[in-house]
Each structure stands twice: as C-alpha cells, then as structure tokens.
Amino acid sequence: MPIKDYIRERFFPHMWCPGCGHGTVLNSLLRAVEQLGMSKNEIVVVSGIGCSARISGYVDFHTLHTLHGRALAFATGVKLSKPELNVIVPMGDGDALAIGGNHFIHAARRNIAMTAIVMNNKIYGMTGGQFSPLTGVGGMATTAPYASIDRSFDVVELAKAAGATYVARSTAFHAQECTQMIHDAILHDGFSVVEIMTQCPTHYGRKNKKGGPAEMIKEFKDITTPIGSKAKQENPGLIERGVFVEKDLPEYCAEYDKIIERAQGGA
C-alpha cells in the first residue's frame, strides 16, 4: 500500500490499544501526505508526550518527540529557522490544551505556518485515564471519580479566538473528511488547527460506559453534523464538523523575512 512508504514498518504493529482512534488519524495523515506528494525529507513531525505523541515514531519523516505540551514551541524553532520545511504537530487534548495551552494560543496568534492536529479523545490515556480539559462536566475519569465538574474547552472556538487562520473539526468516523482537512491544513499558509475527535475505548470508553471501539466510533456519526446543517437547528446539542475558518493573513516566517530585509537596509 502506497502509504506504507511513509511509515517505519519495523515498529508495527503500533503500541496503541485495539480500536484506538489515534491509529485512524495516523491513517488519514499518511493519506493526506501521499496526496500532497511531498518529499519525506521536507516534512518534520513534532510531537509532545502522550498516546498521540507516539505518532512521530511511526512516520518516516524528520521526527522530534519532545516534552509534554511543548511540541509547538519546538516546532516554532524548527519552522522559523527553516521555513521551507512542512511542520506537522500531532497533539493530544491534554498535551495541546492543558500543559501546552499557552504555546497553542501563541502559535495561533503568530500565525506561523504549521499544522496542529489535536487528537481529542477527552482523556489522558498514557497515564491511565485522568480527566483532561476536554473531558467536560459529568465525564468520569480516574481523577474525577464523582464525575468531573470541570467545564471543557471548545478546541475550535479557542483556536479561532487565538487567531488560527485555518480551523477545522472532524472525527475518526469521518476519516475521508479528516484526510481532506489535514491535506488542506498542510497546504494552508498560516497556523492551522484540525481537531479530530477520537475514541479511547480503554480509558474514556470504559469509564463512561461508551461500549467498544465500534460503538464509540459510530457515536461520532450521531453526535456530529456538518456546519450549518438543518439538524443543528433542530438539535443544538450536535457538534459541528467542517472548516470553520480559512483565511489569508500575514504568515509569521514571511513577515520575519521582511524584518531581515529592513534590518539589512532594504525596503
């Protein structure tokens, strides 16, 4: 299969649990890269810590497996120092929005051309099922044994407010849509965020009685709807999928090149 050209096959089968949605995100990411036809040498994948972060070890690009929450900070250094590289940052929900929340909003604010893929499974999987800032009120977790009273972030609203210039949301169920969004996000000349809702059958699923992997992935079909759909009007509780923001604004590295020109006495 052509996407196998982009993975480090010797590490498969991967370490994710049976039915983990992160594997589907990897699948979509590889298809997006294949469609783009980019050289493996011009892609850098930077990840933090957690289940999601293990993606970097499986893909045959330049890969940087960093610290919990800090992936976007490392990625900023990679990108600004060598803007011709395509920088992709797969992140978990806790990684991106708890410990890494500050780096997330500032990368968005700068509009530096990188792609953050937030794999939102509403839980800390690697450490055993503690609640994340995406778990939401009522969610069960090892650190919310009486149900969580913490309100959750909305990744899309947060990314929009912080200034990301491409913001999209999909789910592991909608794998084709994910591939298209990741494809477009990588091509986007600015900071792009793709939230992908993924199932964690082992921790979130078990704690919250969501059934097995198949039940969980099918639920994404039932609880989401395309942006602006009639279904949303009838059922405001549905989560919208689609591209929320796509706009052209000055990109950070390009703007810095102008600073260099000015500093060197040019325009």
Partner: peptide, 9 residues
C-alpha cells in the same frame, strides 16, 4: 481508511 492498525488494504 478507518482501520486504526493500517492492517487492511
């Protein structure tokens, strides 16, 4: 495309 294990072709 949905297989989380990249096991189906």
């Amino acid at each position: 495309i949905r297989c989380p294990d990249l096991a189906i072709e």
